[in-house]
Design a protein around this nucleic acid. Structure first.
Lengths: 192, 192
DNA sequence: ACCTGAACACCGTTCAAGT
DNA sequence: ACCTGAACACCGTTCAAGT
């Protein structure tokens, strides 16, 4: 039973899990296909069956990151918090928390890509921005935000969250300062 | 005269210039010390005399990036634009322009560092944030911004610029949308 | 369909040696 | 002080071959 094909049907997932951990603990430069294969107990050529090259694995990691973060924002919308200001804060807090615990992954998600991203990655990032957009729309509908131009408000909120996260991951400000900044930003948006 | 030491005293600068160009044209993955040495016409071990390792060269590139961007923000402050709203817009526009023309470099400047950054890099990034801070302070003094909490306003402005730049470099929005977002963000801050 | 293992080209880093 | 060139370990990628 425990014969040769240690992984059957799930090597891809095993590689991604291990890669995510390595990314978190030692950064992107320490991420190599060969080491992942070694840790998974397969030959160095095995990953090729699931990822055509290293960039393909990085794209898959970014895709998982977007889906996870999108899921958290969607969870905020499904919560029973009546106050939309609280929802905006919760979504932004999730964003900053992600930036703190998975800085290298967030970098990867927002790194300048040379070519066009694969479809799965595009869809995943789209899901995140759609979730943020829905949250803004709902906040407007609840009268918490000015109805002005919803699309612009969505982008602005996304930019503020990404900017705060970026300052945190790059070590410019602490996670605590990041949370304070969220409050300031939301106060500004809500009041506007 | 044109004997052996092709570069004497300026190999470091030659390597950095070439590296910056490669970074711009082919991204960070295409940046190798050996190729830089080849293009400079020196042996592959020569860069070692100026950069202890690859990360050290990347740090030097980031440092130059921060200094260049800081210089542009400082130039905005030294300009004769009487209107501080225009100054804020000009500073933010310079930031977005930098993001568009040197996306990979901006990524490098705000990448999560594993260890503590070297002193020169710290100083250069400090110079940028100090320049942004001064601009905000002057805008407050000119009555363009509410005096509230200057430090928070500085961070918020920095976060918004970095966030918009990040959305642009990652291809989420166009440079044009980035400029529109700047207007929206500044309107929000000025009105507040 | 998935994995093995040899092969190739390239890289970062170290270091003794040259000038 | 700066550069050369050999050496080492590691890597991404390709590909014929196995099961």
């Amino acid at each position: 039973m425990t014969s040769r094909p240690f992984h059957h049907g799930n090597l891809r997932a095993v590689l991604l899990d291990q890669a995510e951990q390595t990314l978190r603990e030692r950064g992107i430069d320490a991420l190599s296909l060969r080491e992942l294969a070694r840790k998974a107990g397969v030959s160095h050529g095995a990953p090729r069956s699931h990822f055509v090259d290293r960039q393909s694995l990085l794209d898959a990691l970014a895709e998982r990151g977007f889906n996870r973060l999108a899921g958290e924002v969607e969870a905020v919308m499904a919560s029973d918090a009546a106050n939309y200001r609280q929802r905006l804060r919760a979504a932004a807090a999730a964003y900053v928390h992600f930036a703190v615990t998975d800085a290298a992954l967030l970098d990867l998600m927002f790194t300048a890509k040379n070519g066009n991203p694969p479809e799965g990655l595009r869809a995943a990032s789209g899901r995140l921005f759609a979730a943020v957009g829905d949250l803004i729309d709902q906040s407007i509908a609840a009268g918490e935000l000015e109805p002005q131009d919803p699309h612009r408000l969505q982008l602005l909120f996304a930019a503020v969250m990404q900017g705060i996260a970026s300052l945190v991951t790059s070590g410019r400000i602490s996670a605590q300062d990041g949370d304070s900044l969220i409050d300031d930003a939301i106060s500004l948006l809500v009041r506007a």
